[in-house]
Design a protein around this nucleic acid. Structure first.
Lengths: 271, 271
DNA sequence: GCCTTGGCCG
DNA sequence: CGGCCAAGGC
């Protein structure tokens, strides 16, 4: 591994204003080069920029939304070159952004959760999710021929493998783990020429979770998690990946007013 | 003054569940025999009894209400004998309770705030407030012949004197200080044979406030207060009063998540 | 469960 | 400004 790897983290923060202290502490502790946030739940102008500046993350690319919904942001210790994001969201939600940082193309995605009923005819939100996944396959396959190092991260709201959920059997009809979703996600990943960093490191028999419901009495004891948060790398980035650096930062699911998602990180050699 | 005076405090707590820590600290610091609370904003069954038990206030008389409105409670280090309250509130709100503790009749009242427009024909809430005040005069005059020591406390939502508000002139048409209210309150007090402890101690030229709006940028600096919280004593209780003990506990208007009201206390010799 | 918003109230 | 509630979302 090079002396100065490029470390990227992704975290569904479930309100960045409420959890600015958590994020500050996380950045101090893990010191990634770049942090991609989802569900910031604020307007662009309400982003707590100061909290990030204070700890050295002075470059911000914020895509906020009103109504307390969605919203994504990239914060970085290095300058950010804004890229045109893929037009994945037919609803115009603040869910997708792209940037170039330190020679890496970074794509940050908050994929629609999809509601409760896994039927696109009955549930518009599920239809939107499948539509978003189909767009991903289309848009990223168009990009795949451009072989610059590309990392896609975010809360994709799909747990693709059997061991990405606490019970494959019990979740097969639960949105996030239905075959329609897991197959569409795998198809999108492959169409974009991406590798799933977590599963490149860990074999498929290994349980991996990044999200635990708030509703559990004791999330850690019952450990009914799902792996909804992902780091994908294309060929060029995969060649630079330090697989062993992949980490799900469990500690941040606990502590003071935690998000229901843990942050996830991985490091790469610089291109 | 006797060695073991009877100390009573009153505090509009604006949610007793949220501010259970504040109340605990107050009780530890001021150690009254009895604390009367208003705006507990919880149902009777949701009252945080444990917080009071922990600091020695094991006797509770709680009159809660749903919908997050009103609610009054008496907590005491001594046994409480429940008395029938006066039927002052035509709306059936949880606003009035009465008890006997250590030989004192205690009446705890949360008087209707009265809305914004000081006109009973336009504003039902103001009409209700005037109606409540008229009921007080009627009901307590009926009680006045019973000369047992009687103390009436609570958030009466009226600042009767010129120096019970930061600007008499500017508040004459503001609900809480209109002549209709201040005259009705004085009439109720006199009809019940009560003395206003604060004004028995302090002359009318002295500004006295117990409430400061949350809306002020700096409540202490601007000091635009009103005296809405009162301790009244009938003849028998007045004869036992230690006037010098009267205190508005300003410190509790500040600190961690304060109520917009400060607690008020006074001590009496035991009957 | 834990966020958001927006309304009612003071 | 800051309690409460009721929805809507995940």
């Amino acid at each position: 591994m090079a002396l100065h790897p490029f470390k990227i983290s992704t975290w569904n923060i479930n309100s960045v204003r409420l959890r600015a202290p958590n994020v500050q502490q996380f950045l101090k502790a893990e010191a990634p080069d770049v942090l991609c946030l989802q569900e910031i739940k604020c307007q662009t102008g309400e982003f707590p920029a100061k909290a990030f500046n204070e700890v050295g993350y002075t470059h911000h690319q914020v895509l906020g939304q009103g109504g307390g919904h969605h919203g994504v942001a990239i914060v970085s210790r290095h300058p950010i070159e804004t890229l045109e994001p893929q037009p994945l969201c037919r609803e115009g939600h603040a869910r997708v952004q792209a940037a170039r940082i330190e020679g890496f193309e970074i794509h940050n995605i908050y994929l629609p959760a999809g509601g409760d009923v896994p039927d696109p005819d009955e549930n518009d939100k599920f239809a939107h999710k499948l539509d978003f996944l189909a767009s991903m396959a289309r848009d990223y396959s168009a990009l795949a021929s451009d072989a610059s190092p590309r990392i896609l991260v975010g809360d994709l709201n799909v747990a693709p493998h059997e061991n990405d959920v606490w019970s494959h059997k019990q979740l097969l009809k639960i949105v996030s783990h239905t075959p329609a979703e897991t197959e569409a996600l795998e198809k999108a990943r492959e169409a974009g020429g991406f590798f799933d960093i977590a599963r490149e490191l860990h074999d498929d028999g290994q349980k991996l979770y990044t999200w635990w419901s708030y509703r559990a009495k004791d999330w850690a004891a019952s450990n009914r998690g799902r792996r909804l948060d992902h780091i994908w790398a294309n060929d060029a980035a995969m060649g630079l990946a330090d697989l062993d650096s992949y980490s799900i930062h469990l500690a941040w699911r606990g502590g003071w007013k935690p998000s229901d998602h843990a942050p996830v990180s991985s490091s790469f050699q610089r291109p």
